[in-house]
Deep mutational scan, measured.
Amino acid sequence: MIIKINGKYYKIKKIEKNPNGKYTITTENGKKYEFKNVKIFSEEELK
């Protein structure tokens, strides 16, 4: 799965839903981001 952050695309390693309704997304390079609204892309959609 792929996520778009600030115009760049990252591969997703893990998605966790937090009790506060936000999502914590861990990218393949180990960085964590927290979002309220998340749009996930499949690799097929990006081709």
Score class of each variant (00 low, 15 high):
Phe41Ala: 07
Met1Val: 08
Ile5Val: 11
Ile3Lys: 01
Glu16Phe: 08
Ile12Trp: 01
Thr24Tyr: 09
Phe35His: 03
Ser42Gly: 08
Glu28Val: 14
Glu45Asp: 12
Ile40Phe: 12
Lys36Tyr: 13
Glu45His: 07
Lys39Trp: 10
Ile12Phe: 02
Met1Asn: 06
Tyr9Lys: 04
Lys14Ile: 08
Lys31Asn: 10
Glu43Val: 03
Phe41Tyr: 13
Ser42Tyr: 15
Asn6Phe: 13
Glu44Trp: 02
Asn6Asp: 10
Lys47Phe: 03
Glu34His: 11
Ile3Arg: 01
Phe35Arg: 07
Gly21Val: 00
Lys36Ala: 14
Lys11Phe: 07
Lys39Asp: 11
Thr26Ile: 11
Ile5Asn: 01
Gly7Ala: 03
Thr27Tyr: 04
Gly21Asp: 03
Gly30Ser: 02
Ile5Arg: 02
Ile2Arg: 08
Lys4Pro: 02
Lys22Arg: 14
Glu34Leu: 08
Glu28Trp: 14
Glu44Arg: 03
Lys22Trp: 15
Lys36Trp: 15
Ile3Trp: 03
Lys31Ala: 10
Leu46Thr: 09
Lys39Ala: 09
Asn37Trp: 15
Lys22Ser: 15
Thr26Glu: 10
Lys11Leu: 07
Lys11Ile: 09
Lys47Val: 13
Tyr9Leu: 08
Tyr33Val: 05
Ile15Ser: 01
Phe35Met: 12
Tyr10Arg: 04
Ile15His: 00
Gly7Glu: 04
Asn6His: 12
Asn37Glu: 11
Lys14Ser: 15
Ile15Cys: 11
Gly7Thr: 03
Ile25Trp: 01
Pro19Gly: 11
Lys31Met: 13
Thr26Trp: 15
Asn29Ile: 03
Lys22Gly: 14
Thr26Lys: 01
Val38His: 05
Phe35Ala: 10
Glu28Gly: 05
Lys31His: 11
Lys4Leu: 14
Thr26Ala: 01
Thr24Cys: 07
Tyr9Gln: 04
Gly30Lys: 01
Lys14Arg: 10
Thr27Ile: 13
Met1Trp: 15
Gly30Thr: 00
Lys32Cys: 11
Lys31Tyr: 09
Ile3Pro: 00
Lys11His: 09
Asn6Ser: 09
Lys17Thr: 05
Asn37Cys: 15
Glu16Arg: 06
Ile40Ser: 04
Asn37Asp: 13
Leu46Lys: 09
Leu46Asp: 07
Ile2Met: 15
Lys39Val: 15
Lys36His: 10
Thr26Met: 06
Glu16Ser: 08
Asn37Thr: 14
Glu43Thr: 03
Lys36Phe: 13
Tyr9Ser: 05
Glu34Gly: 03
Lys22Ile: 15
Ile25Lys: 00
Lys11Pro: 03
Glu28Asn: 08
Tyr9Asn: 04
Ile2Lys: 06
Ile5Gly: 01
Tyr9Met: 08
Ile3Tyr: 02
Asn37Pro: 03
Tyr33Gln: 01
Lys14Gly: 09
Glu16Asp: 06
Lys14Phe: 10
